[in-house]
Structure formats: C-alpha cells, structure tokens
C-alpha cells in the first residue's frame, strides 16, 4: 500500500474520531461501481504486465484460490478503479498458487478465481480470500451471500488491513455477516500453526514498499500483527483474520530480490497451513 493512501486514512480517522466509529458507521464516501460491473471490467483485457483471462475449463480441481469481489468505498491499490478487492490481483494469487503447488501436492487450479459474494457459484469454492477489508462496505446481498457461504461450510482467509480504524470497519462488516459470533485471538499452540509448517512466531509482513525500504513494517497504527479467528459453536474455524500484516504483497513480490525472503517464506507458510487446515477440518 503506497504512503499517500496511508496518510489519507490517518486524516480521516482523526477527523471522524476513532471512538465514533463503532458498529454503526457514518456514511462514508463511496465512489466504486457495483461489483458486477467491476467484474466485467476485470475479465479479459490488458491488466498490468500480463493478460489474465479467467479460464474455468481444464477439468475439475480440488482447490481454487478464490478471491472475493466485494463492494468497498475505496478503489483500492494495485488495480485502480476496481475496488479494494482487486489489490495485488491477479499476480499475488497466481504466484501464491505456484508456491502452493510446489510445496504441497494439492490439486490446485493454476489461475486466479475472483467471484462476487452474491454469486451462487461462490459455493463451489470452499476457500475464500479477502483483503483490504478495511474499506469493505458490503451490500445486503453480499452480506447474505457471505453469511450463507460461511455457515454452509466455507472458510474465509482475511488479509492486508491495518490499524484501529480499518479493524473497526472490518469488525462492523463481519458482525453484519456473523452477528452472533465472537472474534478471538488464535493462540500459537492451535493446530493451524503446526499442521504443515511449524510456525513459532507471527511475523509482521510489510507491504512491498516498506519491505524494500526497510523502514519499518507497519502501517497506520498497526504496529503489532495479530492472527484472529471466528469459530462456530462446534469449534469449526470459519474466518482466519490476519491483521496488521500483508501476506498478499509477500506472495506478489516473492521473486523481487529487494523484498526480504523471510517475509515471503512466512506468508507462504501461513497460507499453506491455513489451506491444509481448512481442507482437513
């Protein structure tokens, strides 16, 4: 995430007062198109360095890295104008899949797989990735779609949102989706941290800029990384929340010699562990 956007968020937070941003948020500027239109723009065409075309052929695979397309009040970084859902897309997705297929024997679809939250097809993909959720502003169909997805058996991996304000935005939205659930801290002795790789420490993975520059790993007031979770009454993990960290950038820039390898390693380990856990539990 570039510096200017981080500063903008700080300004907004100061103006509005953090305490007023409880569950009922005031109306925030919304300048994004509905998710369906964004999807139409995203498919096909020339995007960045490569021409990514959604290809759902090539048989049936066990795992699809499915990215949630959701409504937000921010156009997001990385893919201007398409909403925050498209941050790091599709390079992060595809590069992550390269790593996943090399490190495990999961039968993974080679390409990215963005799907809107209110699309019935979302149910075909039990693993869902969302990031930049600090800008999330879900429509009612998206709320219902995500709720049904999670209670039916889906798993949500949340990434790349920073600081108090963005947490409050996310918390507000997720409690619209799962109003009777509780967000808890995931302890390091949880099986998720040892089912494939043994993770003994939660690293704060910086964005590509911070990572290259070496000037601190945090954004806004997100100084300490957290891994939090939402469980259902039977103990099933529904949502894994990576706050104050940017795993997506670490996948996206894993090949960059200036981006520290340790962060990319950790990012792959966390995601691999989460995927293995979600598929087996």
């Amino acid at each position: 995430m570039e510096l200017w956007r981080s500063k903008s968020f700080l300004v907004v937070a100061v103006l509005l007062g953090g305490a007023s941003l409880a569950r009922d948020l005031p109306n925030l500027p919304r300048d994004t198109a509905p998710a369906e239109e964004v999807l139409g723009q995203a498919y096909g065409g020339y995007i960045g360095d490569r021409n990514f075309v959604i290809n759902r052929g090539n048989g049936l695979h066990e795992f699809y890295f499915t990215r949630a397309i959701y409504s937000s009040w921010s156009r997001g970084y990385g893919r201007r104008g398409r909403g925050s859902w498209a941050t790091d897309w599709p390079k992060a997705d595809v590069q992550f899949l390269w790593g996943l297929k090399r490190l495990t024997n999961i039968d993974a679809y080679d390409f990215d797989n963005p799907v809107t939250l209110d699309n019935p097809d979302l149910r075909r993909y039990p693993f869902l990735y969302m990031l930049e959720v600090g800008a999330m502003q879900l429509t009612p169909p998206e709320v219902e779609g995500l709720r049904d997805y999670l209670t039916a058996g889906g798993f949500l991996f949340v990434d790349d949102f920073w600081g108090t304000y963005e947490w409050q935005v996310f918390e507000h939205e997720i409690y619209r989706v799962l109003p009777n659930y509780e967000i808890v801290e995931l302890p390091l002795d949880h099986p998720l941290f040892s089912n494939f790789y043994v993770i003994e420490e939660i690293l704060q993975v910086p964005n590509v800029g911070n990572g290259r520059s070496g000037y601190g790993t945090w954004e806004q007031d997100g100084y300490v990384p957290h891994v939090r979770a939402i469980f259902d009454d039977d103990g099933r993990l529904l949502v894994l929340i990576n706050w104050n960290t940017d795993l997506g950038d670490a996948w996206e820039w894993a090949e960059d010699p200036w981006y520290p390898l340790a962060y990319s390693n950790f990012a792959y380990q966390m995601a691999v562990n989460a995927i293995i856990y979600a598929m087996s539990h």
């Binding site: 066990e62 795992f63 024997n105 039990p126 995927i275 979600a278 087996s280």
Partner: peptide, 18 residues
Amino acid sequence: EGEPTNRTGFLRNFAIDD
C-alpha cells in the same frame, strides 16, 4: 488420502464429527 481434499474436512466436520 493421497492429497489434501475438501471432502476430508467436510466429512470429518459435518458427517462424522462427534
């Protein structure tokens, strides 16, 4: 199972759990 599969988790969690 020879590879991670979604059915493993669904089977354990929803069908055979408890």
